[in-house]
Design a binder for these strands. Structure first.
Lengths: 116, 116
DNA sequence: CATAGATACATCACCTGTCAAGGTATCTAT
DNA sequence: ATAGATACCTTGACAGGTGATGTATCTATG
């Protein structure tokens, strides 16, 4: 298992939603932003990104439209829907809970020593 | 996506290895211990557990043997190998890094505001 | 003694998210 | 012209998780 390959599985959608919090953006931009944020530690693959976009839009979490650029390659913009905003809030809470849960399962947290 | 379904994917092996840190144990016991630790929040499924055991043993991370119980159902015990101990150390470090990385990707960490 | 439930192991087929590989098209710099 | 960046997309394969199902033993209950 690679250092950061399967460990981020399931977080892709949350990461995307989070990147749309501050306004609409498009795929390439989001990917760039993510890459810059983690240096060489991790890279969201394009295939993963676009399949996640599909899923999120099919689920009504984001909406997309073609930009009207008259120069350069066309861009498909995405923005959060109200559903997506709610989902993001849930996911953030879920991540917080997940962190605590895994920490506990790995004995990284001092557990109240009343068992045994 | 459920609250804690796909989010723990990839951590199963680490969780198992961690549970073997304090000595040998067997599948059912490990599963019970995990369940108790997280209440109703999460449950390691048996199928998941046993396939993980297979993988870990095939990779030389754990070793197993049949217990000599003369009463009750037979038990297959597992213990860490030196390889497994090393792997656990790596995984724990990896988890720490993963936490920081995801936090950053979700804008949960104050990032040095020198970009843009 | 029949029944239910806990203990304890195991396998199989399926589902889902990830990703390598490949593709298209436009603009900019040399 | 050529290379490289920008920008999108699809396909097939893979791997881990899991529901369903099966085995066998022991204990408690009426």
């Amino acid at each position: 298992m690679a250092l950061t390959a399967d460990l981020l599985r399931g977080h892709t959608e949350t990461i995307i939603l989070s990147h749309l919090r501050n306004g609409a953006s498009y795929g390439y931009q989001i990917n760039k932003s993510i890459s810059e944020k983690c240096g060489s530690a991790f890279e969201l693959k394009e295939a993963t990104l676009y399949t996640a976009f599909r899923r999120l839009e099919a689920d009504g979490m984001i909406r997309s439209w073609w930009g009207d650029e008259d120069t350069g390659a066309r861009r498909r913009y995405y923005r959060l829907t109200p559903l997506g905003e709610a989902r993001l809030r849930e996911d953030l809470a879920g991540w917080d809970e997940t962190k605590r849960l895994i920490d506990q399962l790995l004995d990284l947290e001092p557990v109240p020593a009343e068992n045994k």
